[in-house]
Design a protein around this nucleic acid. Structure first.
Length: 647
RNA sequence: GCGCCAGUAGCUCAGCUGGAUAGAGUAACAGACUACGAAUCUGUGGGUCACGAGUUCGAAUCUUGUCUGGCGCGCCA
């Protein structure tokens, strides 16, 4: 498994808009008061076989700058030295076999001398740089492996690790692309090709370059590469739905309900056609044909991996366009995408008992049976060539088409069949997590269930409102085209599962939510989840430290007001579960946790828990701590958040 | 236009089957480790509960009107 880790030794850096954008139009064209989060770009790649560094930070002892309103760029305040940051990641200098140098500047080449045993790969045109003189282990790269994707010159320096000529920022600049074959992902490490993501989106060069023409060319190629976005990725709306849905299931199960978790996959329809067509196009591309992708198709490079997999397994078997090959590409594409989604969700602590597919329903006989049933009941009529369901006889405000003029079913008909099938399996209550943009769906489905004689209350939809994402005070629009949206996977990777789950669980799903990326990513330590987890860790370490004083045989003597408050809060756990289950409101659990953690912290600060001189009181207090630990652990588990013993 | 959801401290949100002085986190400021983890604790400042009218002994909470924002109103899924 390949791992890519940032080596972080300074934090809180920024670049101003004139600095990051002003390369071509000049700094004066931009707003000097706009600052973007910016960091030093140094990474470690652990391929599983060897450890490779991309750049080596600033030399130890480089003084911090002191920024003011006029500072164009600031590299941040010291957290530790570069070498210490490397050690903090768990790596020693002598484990590093290769170093890939994007360019000569001191904040990238700083500690090269500390790795005498590693091979330092550097663009042949960078060799004369003053920063590189006196190093005996330089490997000049002449880019012998030809083009890599849309970059004309490259060299593979390790399995799946490509060093690529990308000049302009310096005359011997290079970038690194790492392929993660398992995930079908590409990581592009661009050094200082851009200082901030916003400049990349806005297509602006920074003011630092040695060859403007080449810098522009490099920027265009990097943009072309990264704009190809992966398909099927979950976005933050899904994150919210998943976090809430899973927590609701946990809470209902805890409250004594028998819960089955299902995922319904809409694997039919236009979008899926586009996916299949895109996979087909990539597959044909592998056989030397020009790439045939329409505007609405998926341009994601991850599809190349899928196509390569098909070629490996089946050779040229699917080159001929037939009904079978058409279906094959769709099915294969879906399978891979679904695998990715399930892995993302599983990493997020969300699991399903059953996955139902729209395609299975369409393939079976249930649709015909359902239509026959509805027709017999008189709920179906035709108008202008299409077939409608009389949902407006029940709760809906208009009738809904179930068969299009061209004879295809709409999405709604398989959905109805799916819900009938679920009721048929004997469930009392169907609960669906729906994004706010599917609001109109609820009464439609309730109406359909009523046609079959079910109570409209058997179907309930919990709506979670749209997540608006803000970055630097501006809304980040979710757009597949621009690749601007942060994906679920990226967020979880950067902030951590626990923090993300707690963040979404903390809030009522039916309120609008503004998600500040700067806050989530840079100040992640401030997330309330750490407050609760710390309380748990504290309890653990108290119990460990006083383990010889624990005595479960005594009757605890607890008299202080604080102890009373804690006992009260602990006693409310069952009724809190009941309330949270009834309202299907995970945030009630989060509020409870927060309150309990607060009481624990306050108690700890005010009371000496372990007193070697007083066995009975100490044992009493430790019993209380033990109870707190159990409750807070159980409560966190309901939200899918871990309860670490150490932090 | 119609429907649904929302508007509470600078920011993010609780409080809504009516009940006493509207809470928390965060941000700001001031303090606290030679006791068990300072990812903590203690304190200070900060609100016309969008606005108006009504019901009531009593309204952030219920009714109604207005304003603002989000979403929906497809032979899309």
């Amino acid at each position: 498994m390949i791992k890519i880790l940032p080596v972080i030794y300074r934090e809180g850096g920024f670049a101003t808009q004139p600095f990051a954008f002003g390369g071509e139009e000049g700094p004066a064209a931009f707003d000097a008061t706009v600052r973007y989060r910016s960091g030093l770009q140094n990474y470690l790649i652990d391929t599983g076989k060897e450890v490779i560094l991309v750049d080596t930070g600033l030399p130890a002892g480089t003084p911090e700058e002191s920024p003011d309103e006029t500072t164009p760029i600031y590299t941040g305040h010291d957290v530790m030295s570069y070498m210490d940051a490397l050690a903090a990641l768990g790596y020693a200098p002598n484990q590093v076999s290769k170093i890939l140098l994007t360019h000569k500047h001191a904040d990238h080449s700083g500690e090269l001398a500390s790795f005498p045993d590693a091979e330092v790969y550097v663009n042949e045109h960078e060799l004369d740089a003053a920063e590189l003189q006196g190093l005996a282990n330089l490997v000049p790269v002449t880019f012998t492996d030809g083009p890599y994707k849309n970059f004309p010159e490259s060299q593979e320096v390790a399995d799946g690790v490509w060093f690529i000529r990308a000049e302009g920022h310096t005359k011997g600049n290079a970038i690194v692309i790492v392929e993660d074959a398992e995930e079908g992902l590409f990581y592009l490490i661009h050094g200082d090709v851009t200082y901030v993501d916003e400049a990349l989106y806005a297509n602006k060069l920074s003011v630092v370059f040695e060859d403007l023409g080449k810098a522009r060319e490099t920027m265009d190629r990097v943009r072309e590469f990264v704009s190809a976005n992966p398909t099927g990725d979950l976005h933050l709306g899904h994150t919210r739905g998943a976090a809430l849905g899973d927590s609701v299931c946990n809470i209902l199960a805890k409250a004594g309900y028998d819960v089955t978790r299902e995922y319904y996959l809409n694997n039919c329809g236009n979008q899926v056609e586009h996916l299949g067509h895109s996979v087909r196009a990539r597959y044909h591309e592998l056989f030397g044909e020009p790439l045939d992708l329409g505007d609405d198709d998926y341009h994601g490079v991850d599809l190349i991996k899928i196509a390569e997999g098909i070629k490996e397994q089946y050779g040229d078997k699917w080159l001929k366009d037939t009904k079978e090959s058409h279906d094959f590409f769709i099915e294969h594409g879906i399978e891979v995408e679904l695998g990715k989604i399930m892995k993302d969700l599983s990493d997020f602590g969300v699991h399903f008992d059953k996955i139902s597919k729209e395609s299975d329903i369409r393939a079976g006989s249930t649709i015909a049976d359902t239509i026959a049933f509805l027709k017999e009941k008189g709920y179906v009529y035709e108008s202008e060539g299409a077939t409608y369901l009389r949902t407006s006889d029940f709760l809906d405000d208009k009738d809904r088409p179930i068969i299009k003029k061209d004879g295809c079913y709409t999405y709604f008909l398989p959905d109805v069949c799916y819900h009938y099938e679920k009721m048929n399996r004997g469930f009392d209550q169907l609960i669906v997590m729906l994004g706010a943009d599917h609001f109109g769906y609820i009464n439609r489905m309730k109406s359909a269930l009523m046609m079959k004689g079910y109570s409209p209350d058997a179907y309930e939809a919990d709506i979670y409102q749209i997540v608006r994402v803000y970055k630097d005070g501006e809304e980040v629009k979710m757009s597949k085209r621009t690749g601007k949206a942060i994906t679920h996977r990226e967020l979880v990777a950067e902030v951590g599962k626990d923090a993300v789950r707690y963040f979404f669980a903390e809030r009522n799903g039916d309120t609008h939510l503004d998600f500040d990326l700067n806050l989530a990513t840079s100040h992640s330590k401030d997330n309330p989840v750490y407050y609760a987890q710390y309380a748990h860790a504290r309890c653990t370490s108290l119990l460990e430290m006083g383990k010889d004083m624990v005595d479960d045989s005594i009757t605890p003597v607890l008299a202080s007001a604080k102890e009373g408050d804690i006992l009260k809060q602990l006693a409310q756990f069952p009724s809190m579960i009941e309330a949270a289950a009834n309202a299907r409101a995970p945030y009630k659990v989060a509020n409870y946790i927060q309150k309990l953690a607060q009481l624990i912290h306050e108690y700890y600060a005010a009371t000496k828990i372990i007193d070697r001189e007083d066995k009975v009181s100490t044992a009493s207090r430790l019993s209380l701590i033990k109870a707190c630990r159990i409750v807070i652990r159980n409560a966190l588990a309901l939200l899918g958040v871990s309860a670490p013993d150490k932090m």
